[in-house]
Computed example of a mutant assay.
Amino acid sequence: MKKLAIIFPGVGYTCTKPLLYYTASMAAERGYEIIRLDYGQDIHTFHGRTPAELEPVIKLAIKRTLPQLENVPFSEYDDIIFISKSIGTTIACQLETALQLKGKVHQFLMTPIPSTLRYLSDINGLFFAGTADPYMPESKIHAAARNFPDKTGGIFEGCNHSLEQKGDTLGALKNVRLIVECLDKMLTNA
């Protein structure tokens, strides 16, 4: 069985950061080939965070991502998962359609941004969010959890955009572990 995991980073949250590093590591342990995307240094160091500021950055990231994936023989894979963080969640959802993979991809969305929420009804997968995320209003997180309980992987009370609480290193590590365990369960059942 051929399996593929594509890792979609966020702004400033590259594939070497804990949530993406350890989820990619778990996917590799479960026999998935790993593709780690890179949008370019200018995007990884971008400082804007409003939806209006992020929209052109998302479009540019997609433009840069497509060439990284153009030679991937998606039809040869029995299982494909998109593991994403922050703006990567919107990029992953848009690329599922652009690459004509609708219904063939499992999405694993960590700390989605508001523009990702419109895709929840169409995806096969889970999302994870913190209630103290400055880029996603808590009311939207709870509404998404109510509207899509089967796609709610976890809501982390009081946690920020990295699913951490300031001054709680052990809690942050526990959250990473919970995320990785959820991914492991998803990969095992795929």
Rank of each mutant, 00 (worst) to 15 (best):
D78R: 01
I35P: 10
K151H: 10
G171I: 10
V57T: 05
H161W: 02
L69N: 01
V105A: 00
V11T: 15
D168Q: 15
C182L: 14
A143L: 12
I6M: 05
Y21V: 00
M26S: 04
G40D: 06
V57I: 14
I141W: 04
S25Q: 03
L4V: 00
C15D: 10
H47M: 12
I87D: 09
E70C: 07
E76G: 13
R177L: 13
G130Q: 09
A28Q: 03
G88V: 00
Q41V: 15
P51T: 08
G88T: 07
E138W: 04
L178I: 09
L60E: 15
K151P: 09
K3D: 07
H44D: 02
V72I: 08
I179C: 08
G12P: 04
P73H: 08
G171L: 12
D42G: 13
T16N: 14
H106L: 08
M136P: 07
A190N: 10
I80C: 00
V180H: 05
Y39F: 11
G130P: 12
P9A: 11
Y135W: 13
I141T: 03
G125K: 03
I6S: 09
M186F: 10
V176Q: 08
Y32W: 01
K59G: 09
D79H: 00
K102N: 11
N175H: 14
S121M: 06
L95H: 03
Y119D: 11
D122L: 09
K166R: 11
S121D: 14
K174N: 15
E181G: 07
T111R: 12
T152Y: 08
T16E: 15
I80V: 02
Y32D: 01
E29M: 01
Y77C: 06
E138H: 05
Q100R: 06
Y39K: 07
Y13N: 12
P51W: 08
F46R: 06
E76H: 09
L117A: 11
G153T: 01
E96Y: 00
D42S: 07
N71V: 09
L69H: 03
F82H: 02
Q100A: 10
C159E: 15
G153H: 05
S139W: 00
L4S: 01
I6A: 04
F128V: 09
G167Q: 08
E164S: 13
P18E: 05
S75N: 02
I123Q: 07
D122C: 13
I87M: 12
L37W: 02
Y39T: 07
T45E: 02
A144C: 05
C93K: 04
H161G: 06
P112T: 12
Q41R: 15
V72A: 03
G31V: 01
T16M: 06
F46M: 08
E55G: 11
R49I: 15
L187W: 00
K59R: 11
Q94R: 15
M136K: 05
F74A: 00
K104T: 01
V105N: 01
